[in-house]
């Protein structure tokens, strides 16, 4: 009995050790990738804020035209770009995002453009209509992909395929905290107060305000998507690093616990053997 239980414990320890090796390796990979992703997310921020500020200024000082991109419509159908991860093992990263998206989109007719394998799986599982499911890898998504997605969605928006465009992504707050968020991209909403004092004078457009707007809006959506992808990727890696760190710690604790049990069982087996020998000698 004692011999078999020490053997069982030994096998358990081995298996926990090999799991720990994997979680350790994943943690290391995630933290090295995280540094790059964080730099990228930080590098995109000035582009995004400048882009947003400029568009607010234009919209504020604009009085002469009516663009379909700013006009509010009756909301019959909503499109949401869902940016999730390529794989799990990142704590609640994917499920938190899906919960946030489901919460924000409740009661609306939804179509989605999933980015990342998990997002595609989610849409298939839930039976959500997909604009397309080509973007199965967040990590390999390029700036050009973002712009072609933006052009596609802007075209569909203009044709009236949907009346609102949202993006569901995860904000990289810090290494330890990631916040899922849903942001409305189209129709563009401007905070009038924000743009005040900046653009009091009339702007000149070339070749025409309409043409400028039509060229800029897809650019704006693409830039925004790119920023959201960068934030999400950093968040995913951050979440994975934290999850894997916790898993490695748990595995370490388990190994300690099991080693103690193993030593006790071994000690017990030796004591028993000695007692048996002594008893045998006495008899």
């Amino acid at each position: 009995m004692a011999a078999s239980s020490t053997k069982d414990i030994k096998i358990r320890i081995k298996s926990v050790q090999s799991t720990m090796q994997i979680t350790k390796a994943m943690e290391l990979v995630a933290s090295s990738k995280l540094r790059r992703a964080k730099e990228r997310a930080e590098a995109t921020r000035p582009y995004f804020t400048t882009l947003h500020q400029t568009l607010s200024d234009i919209a504020y000082s604009n009085t002469e035209f009516f663009s379909p991109f700013v006009q509010k419509r009756e909301v019959k159908k909503v499109c949401c770009v869902i940016i999730a991860g390529d794989r799990g093992l990142a704590g609640g990263y994917n499920s938190n995002l899906f919960k946030a998206v489901a919460g924000a989109m409740e009661g609306k007719t939804l179509c989605a453009l999933p980015i990342g394998k998990k997002a595609v799986e989610y849409c298939v599982h839930r039976g959500i209509e997909m604009v397309n499911d080509r973007y199965t890898s967040v990590e390999d998504l390029t700036l050009r992909d973002c712009f072609s997605i933006a052009r596609l969605l802007c075209d569909q928006f203009r044709q009236g395929a949907f009346d609102e465009l949202h993006v569901g992504y995860t904000n990289f707050v810090s290494m330890l905290s990631q916040q899922p968020a849903v942001l409305k991209l189209l129709p563009i909403h401007y905070d009038r107060k924000e743009a005040k004092n900046r653009a009091e004078s009339l702007l000149e457009y070339e070749p025409s305000s309409q043409a400028v707007y039509d060229a800029i809006v897809p650019e704006y959506v693409g830039g925004l998507l790119w920023g959201a992808v960068a934030e999400s990727l950093a968040s995913e890696l951050g979440a994975r690093r934290t999850a894997m760190d916790a898993a490695s710690k748990n595995a370490g604790e388990m190994i300690d616990d099991l080693s103690l049990k193993y030593n006790r069982a071994r000690q017990g087996a030796i004591t028993q053997e000695i007692t048996e020998i002594v008893a045998g000698a006495e008899a």
């Binding site: 582009y47 400048t50 882009l51 500020q53 400029t54 234009i58 004078s201 650019e219 830039g223």
Partner: peptide
């Protein structure tokens, strides 16, 4: 790609 915006205070070149 991108846009050029000239305001009273500054010039912003937001390029792809």
């Amino acid at each position: 790609g991108g846009m050029l915006a000239v305001t009273k205070d500054d010039v912003r070149l937001v390029a792809t």
